[in-house]
């Protein structure tokens, strides 16, 4: 029996036991069609499966996605904020996959995981590269601006957010800097003078937030599903936190995933501002754009480190450090001389 099949069978058995504990013996849960979705995710290993169980006198069947925490990747993040925020947003206008179950202990499958319902759509980034823009992509980008506004307007204070680190408007930028500088200090392979100076500059110029909101933390094309012109779900909430909503806006149009050919950034911002009922401070936005270059550089270093230490054998991580020259050049463009 090959190793992949063996693992798949082990996970199926573990998931069945987990569902039995969650739903009770009378539910008679069955897990089938478990398959690795290899095309997405780094910090999470994504699997699809079908679950069926007894509920309300009938048999319920759900197509599901399980995100299993990777042993080592580009990021080291807890599942609690990710699953908690997705569950919290279930009834909101923010398009998220339906939250189903979560195991943070790692006891059932060897690694923590959570399960959501399946959402239709594609995450393809190919339309971003259409030189003259793409009408469907433009419509999706407009919906993304609206979804970002809804996320940032969400009344998180009325909900239980005990799974999120509390922050203050004065402390949000510094809290993010502390988080990423800690990752940087633990994972860098060399002196990285450019990044050390970038952190010092950001720290010396950290902005105060006008308000605190739920921040997605990795809001961008590639981390969302769409069908034609319709945005169907925001995915990959592994970096979500309480913070300055400007942070998401500083990330969403980075060059690697920018839909600018289909919808210019200023148009995106105008739609966002109208929907959110707020004006985006352009100086603060620039700070968060600069922060985004540093953050992505650190993510790359973390990936390169995990391969260097052979904690991961994913070759996509191996040479990630090579991209940082371009990120830092962008940082220098954004930061006043």
């Amino acid at each position: 029996m090959n190793e992949a099949l063996d693992r798949s069978e082990q996970l199926t058995a573990g998931l069945t036991d987990f569902l039995l504990a969650e739903l009770g013996a009378g539910a008679e849960p069955v897990v089938s069609n478990l398959a690795l979705i290899s095309s997405i995710g780094n910090a999470r290993e994504p699997w699809s499966f079908t679950a069926s169980w007894n509920e309300s006198g009938g048999r319920r069947t759900e197509d599901c996605v399980m995100l299993l925490k990777a042993e080592a990747g580009q990021l080291e993040t807890s599942l609690a904020p990710e699953f908690g925020v997705i569950a919290m947003l279930d009834a909101s206008p923010v398009p998220t996959p339906p939250a189903l179950w979560c195991d943070q202990s790692g006891a059932w499958l060897g690694q923590p995981f959570f399960v959501t319902g399946t959402v239709a759509g594609s995450a393809s980034m190919r339309p971003l590269r259409v030189e003259d823009g793409d009408d469907d992509l433009r419509a999706v980008a407009i919906e993304l601006a609206a979804a970002a506004a809804e996320l940032h307007r969400f009344d998180w204070q009325a909900a239980d957010t005990s799974f999120l680190e509390p922050v203050t408007p004065e402390g949000v930028a510094l809290a993010q800097l502390d988080l990423w500088q800690d990752q940087f200090d633990r994972h860098r392979l060399g002196a990285e003078p450019g990044l050390q100076w970038a952190f010092a500059w950001l720290r010396g110029n950290a902005p105060v937030a006008e308000r605190v909101s739920i921040v997605h933390g990795d809001l961008r094309f590639g981390n969302l599903l769409y069908e034609g012109p319709k945005l169907t779900a925001l995915l990959d909430w592994e970096m979500t936190h309480l913070g300055d909503p400007t942070e998401d806006l500083g990330w969403v149009y980075r060059e690697l995933w920018s839909p600018r050919r289909s919808l210019p950034f200023e148009d995106f911002l105008a739609i966002y501002e109208e929907r959110a009922g707020t004006t985006v401070d352009r100086d603060r936005l620039r700070w968060y754009q600069a922060f985004g270059e540093v953050k992505h550089s650190v993510i790359s270093l973390t990936g390169a480190r995990s391969f260097h230490d052979r904690l991961s054998l994913n070759l996509r991580h191996a040479d990630r450090r090579a991209t940082n020259g371009a990120f830092l050049r962008r940082f220098y463009e954004l930061v006043p001389a």
Binding site: W197, D319, A322, T323, L328
Partner: peptide
């Protein structure tokens, strides 16, 4: 600092020369 920042910029430029596939 301006001279040191210029040095950082040159380092990034050199990294880009050998860093992009």
């Amino acid at each position: 600092m301006p001279a040191l920042r210029e040095l950082l910029r040159r380092i990034s430029d050199r990294e880009e020369q050998i860093g992009l596939s």
